[in-house]
Simulated scan of single mutants.
Amino acid sequence: MGRHHADEVHDGEVHEHDRGLSYDLPVLARRRMIRLMAGASLVPLVGCTSQDGTSSSSASSAKGSASSSASSSAACATIPDETAGPFPGDGSNGVNVLKESGVVRSDIRKSFGDSAGGTAEGVPLTVTLTVVDAASGCGTPKKGAAVYIWHCDRAGDYSLYSEGVTDENYLRGVQETDDKGQVTFRSIFPGCYAGRWPHIHFEVYGSLADATAATSITSTSQLAFPKDVCDTVYASDGYDESVRNLAGLSLETDGIFSDGYDQQLAETKGSAAEGYTATLTVPV
């Protein structure tokens, strides 16, 4: 089944969401090959979450030696490659925030540097990504890698690009993975804009030096949120447009997640009053 990436819509203007068919076809071929290798009977992949937010079981826990090893190797697929979209801020489409002093940070709610100094308001969200080595069966954390994340604000706008926030660089940040392969960012729950399921973009780099030089990307993907959590968050002040936009969407019809989202659906816990945590394992 082919993939049709949705267009990004801001202030009545439609923006091209992806890099075109020539970019998508290699991604499709790679992901279909992964499915052929894994087989239809395999359980969800390591570190993935199901629709209800519970962690899936690792194929490596299956009994048997040779058959178990083969299943584990096949099940530990790399995180699906996705488009970075039109607003990456990594130098590939205009501005490059990665080379700015201050981008390496854990709290990404405020703008930094010579920008306007605004703060993104919304329901608090703490995002933890665990980067692991897929080649070793997802059991080895990738210490010393780096992750760059970015996402829209509660109005559905992207700093550096969207009208009214071009002078801001909030909701963007880089961190180096620790001994557990983890990075944690403090942010706000992103809004839902027309045509796309609520998500967070991220890029994985081999090192912090690579990330801040905006070179040698290891993986580009997106994190998705469960519908029940989105419904609860969007009942909060400031998310009015998100309620309307989400009503016409589903994970199954989203232009990015429609071909499978098990590896990208974050385990999300908390409340709108106290804030949420979102966790995802990222095999690379």
Rank of each mutant, 00 (worst) to 15 (best):
G137W: 01
S106D: 13
F112T: 00
G117T: 15
V127L: 06
G118P: 12
V104H: 08
K143L: 11
V95Q: 14
F112S: 00
G139E: 14
S115K: 15
T126E: 03
S101C: 13
K143Q: 13
P124H: 06
V127Q: 10
A120P: 01
T128D: 06
S106L: 11
E121Y: 10
G118K: 12
P141Y: 07
S106A: 15
T140E: 11
G102H: 05
G137K: 05
T126Q: 05
F112I: 00
L129K: 03
A116M: 12
C138N: 07
K99Y: 12
S111G: 13
T130D: 09
L129T: 02
G102Y: 03
D107S: 09
G144K: 06
I108H: 07
K142W: 04
A135Y: 04
A135M: 05
G122R: 04
S106Y: 13
L129E: 02
D133P: 00
I108W: 06
R105N: 08
S136L: 04
A145N: 02
A135W: 04
I108G: 03
A116K: 06
V97E: 11
N96A: 15
V95K: 09
D114H: 13
G122H: 01
V132W: 00
A116E: 09
P141Q: 09
K110V: 11
E100N: 13
V103I: 15
V127I: 12
R109W: 03
G139Y: 13
V131E: 00
D114V: 11
R105I: 01
V97F: 08
A145S: 04
P124T: 12
A146C: 08
R105S: 08
T140S: 10
F112D: 02
V131I: 01
R105K: 15
K110Q: 15
D107E: 11
D107H: 07
K143V: 11
V104K: 10
G102C: 08
A134R: 03
D107Y: 12
P141H: 08
A135F: 00
L98A: 12
V127W: 04
K142M: 09
G117Q: 11
N96L: 14
E121C: 07
L98W: 12
G118R: 08
G137L: 03
V97Q: 04
S115G: 15
G144D: 01
G144E: 02
P124V: 09
G137N: 02
A134E: 09
G139C: 12
G122P: 01
K110I: 06
L98C: 14
G137E: 00
C138I: 06
F112P: 00
F112G: 00
K142S: 05
G102N: 10
K143T: 15
A146N: 06
V97K: 07
D133H: 01
G117M: 11
V104E: 10
D107K: 08
T119Q: 07
D114E: 12
T126R: 05
L125E: 00
T130F: 13
A134H: 07
K110D: 12
G137P: 02
G144P: 02
T126M: 01
L98H: 11
G113M: 09
G139M: 10
V97P: 02
A116C: 12
A134C: 04
A120G: 03
G137Y: 00
V103R: 04
P141D: 04
P141R: 04
V103N: 06
A120C: 14
